[in-house]
Each structure stands twice: as C-alpha cells, then as structure tokens.
Design a protein around this nucleic acid. Structure first.
Lengths: 208, 208
DNA sequence: ACGGTTCAAGCACGTTTGTGCTAAAAAGAC
DNA sequence: GTCTTTTTAGCACAAACGTGCTTGAACCGT
C-alpha cells in the first residue's frame, strides 16, 4: 500500500552520517539538524526513522559496538586457527589487537565514535547499557586471547583478570593517544608497543 | 580607589566550580550560566574575570594540567631520593603512577576534568596548545621514570620511547577504565596491573 | 482511477547558549 | 561627603537545540 523504502538501509545511512559528524566535529555537534544536513535529509525525515535524538544516538552507539565486536570475533577466529608460537599466529594476534586502533580511515572513524560514546555514557544515562555491553564484549575477547597467550594457559583466575585488564588498558590508552596525539603516535610506535606488551605477556610467568 | 578583591583567588573559585560541573555533569554543561550558578555568582561577574567562555575553559584546562604536573614532579622527586630496588623505591614508584588514577575524591575530579579537556581538544582548537603542553609534561616525567627503571638505564633511544609510550598508554587506559567502568575497575586491580607492568619493565631487557 | 498508508518536509514553541552593552552597588582616595 | 574605579548584576539579541504537530508528496494494492 504505502511507499516502500528499505527502512533499515535508511537508518543505516543516517547512522553513517552520525559517525561522520562525530569523527569530524565531535559528539556534541551530532544534533538532529546537523545529522539531517549531513545525510541530505530534513529533520522531520530523520525523526521519522528515529523517534528522538536519544534513540538515534543509542542506536548509533549500538551499531559501532557491533561493528567493532564483529571485527574482533573475526580476527580472533583467525588467531584460533593458527599454531601458537608460529609467526603467522603472532601476526594474527597483532592484527586482532590492531582492530582497536585507528590504523586506517575506517578504523579511525569507528575508534573516534566509540571513544566519544563511551565517555558520553559516563554522564548520559541512556547510553549506560550499551557502554556496559561494549565493555563486556571487548573484555570477553581480550580475556580469551590472554588465556590463549599466557604460558600456563591462564590458570590462576586472579592473574588472568589482571593480565586481561592490563592488555585492555594498554589498547585503550594506545587508541586514545593515536586519536588525540596523532603527531606523536605513529602506527609504527603502536606496533612496537603491542609487540613489547606481548613479549611481556609470555615472558614473565614465574616472578611475583 | 576601587573595591579591592583578590582577583586571582576569585578566578580560582570559578575554576573550582568549573571542575565540579565537569566532574558531575560533563564538559558540555560547563556553560557560563551553570558555572556562575555553581560559584554562586552572576554571569556578568564571571565574565568580569574571564573575557569569554573560551578563556575560562582554557584557563581551567591549564590549572588542572599544572596541578597534575606538580603532583608528578613531587612524586618523582621522592622516587629519585630512594635506592632503586628497595621496597620504598617500589612503593614510591607506585605512588607516582597512582597520581594518574582516580584513587580518591580529589584525584578523581582532576582525572575527570583532565580527560574531558584532552578529548575536547581534539575538536576545539583553542584547547590544542594546552593539550600539547599537557602531553609533553607528562611524557617527560614518564620518560625520565622509565629511563630510571629500565635495566640498562635506557640505552637505546628507540627502545626507551617504546617503553615510555607503553607505560603512558597503560596509565591512560587504566585511568579511563577507572572513570568509565568503576564497578569493574577497583583500586586493587589498578595496583595489580601497575605492578605487573613494572615487573615486565625490569624483566625483559634482553629479548627482541 | 483511486484510496490509504508511508515517507518527506517544515513550522512553531519553549529552552539554552555566548556575548555586547548598560547600569547599579561598593569602597578606598581625597 | 564626593569622586573614581572596580566589582556585581542584569537585560537583550541572535543562534542552535529537541520536539509536538501539520501538511504535501509518493506510491502500492485494489
């Protein structure tokens, strides 16, 4: 009966506009009017697909989380398919960890958006649930990776969570610096830091 | 001749109001009206001490940087006064690194404000200079610390910057998680992660 | 051809923001 | 007391925001 448009595709276009605005102008500029302009739509049209500004932002947050989590799962599967200790395995691990960093244009946008939403979620309670989901998803992958990488296979519950959190913190810190101080933080430094961290992960099982 | 008020003290009071607002409601709520209310002043009064909203924010950023840098220098002096390897030395290092984290109420406010400004500086060009100054100041202290802690005393320029950046990333990541996911990130986990990192710093000089 | 439903667009209202400007109040100097 | 300068307070305006609501346009099924 009605005019038929692929509603989900339209929503996705709007979300992409949100991403571009956040990456270039920050989350606070992601207003309905700005998003509508960026998506070449009218405000009323955007509001037809998203009941409110909050819903648009929450959904955008969810999309970026799913994108990142999807890449992580994919890269983790690659790691699992390789022999621990082999050079390919090491490269696959680096590839996995690189999914967190703004190493190319697409990753940079996602990293920007992800960071912006996570920090906004500290204040904006509507984003709280998605932020928790994001944290759980990422921590799960990193936890499984650490379990696989640690010499004793991750026996010692306490030690495992410490190392998982340590890797997670390093990743988020690297991502932050790459976004905020790109002139000081090259892709090469990122790789060196990650390699050094991986060395430390497999090299100090006994002390403490 | 005029009514005499300690202008610098008044400015400081206003800055404290800015800090409280950022910590509780985020940077985007730190408008002139909100700040004036929080400081129990009128908008015109705040504007008498700060020519514009930008100047107020830039100055607030500068103040929080100086506060953090001051604490770091103090804690670093304590580290320098102790024998490397001693238990007191290790404790002093942990105290130094703890200055980055929201371990008590005052540190939490500063960490909040610092994070907010650094992220805002990616977009708001008026904050760019202070952000760079902040990065230089902190990187200098961490660099000196790493030079002191590494087994070979930091010979090997490349290796040193990698380890400095690695420690810096871990610190910022820990700080971020402590601010954003306080329920998962306790002070104990922070301490464990930092201890593990320090172990890795002194324990892997030879490989690579 | 036409009716009904969805999509697109926009108006209008109340808030909030930064800022230019004005003006009253306060208090030491004379 | 009077003057001068700082301090405090506030008004007014344009801009931007989210949102309730209304109005055309588009289009599929009949």
């Amino acid at each position: 009966m009605p005019k038929i448009v692929d509603a989900e595709a339209r929503r996705q276009e709007v979300v992409e506009a949100v991403f571009r605005i956040i990456a270039s102008d920050g989350l606070e500029r992601a207003s309905l009017r700005e998003v509508a302009d960026e998506a070449a739509l009218a405000v009323g049209s955007v509001r037809h697909y998203f009941a409110s500004s909050d819903e648009l932002l929450v959904h955008s947050f969810a999309v970026v989380i799913d994108r990142i989590a999807g890449r992580l799962e994919e890269a983790f599967a690659a790691v699992e398919s390789l022999d621990p200790g082999s050079a390919e395995h090491h490269a696959a691990v680096l590839t996995l960890l690189g999914q967190f960093l703004p190493l190319d244009e697409e990753l940079a946008v996602d990293a920007c958006v992800w960071m912006a939403f996570r920090h906004a979620a500290r204040i904006r309670l509507v984003l709280e649930q998605e932020a928790a989901r994001s944290h759980r998803a990422v921590a799960a992958v990193v936890g499984r990776l650490v379990m696989r990488l640690m010499p004793d296979g991750g026996s010692g519950q306490e030690r495992l969570v410490t190392e998982a959190e340590r890797l997670l913190a390093t990743l988020d810190g690297l991502c932050m610096h790459a976004l905020l101080q790109p002139e000081w933080m090259t892709a090469e430094v990122c790789r060196d830091v990650l390699t050094a961290h991986l060395d430390s992960l497999v090299a100090l099982p006994s002390n403490r």
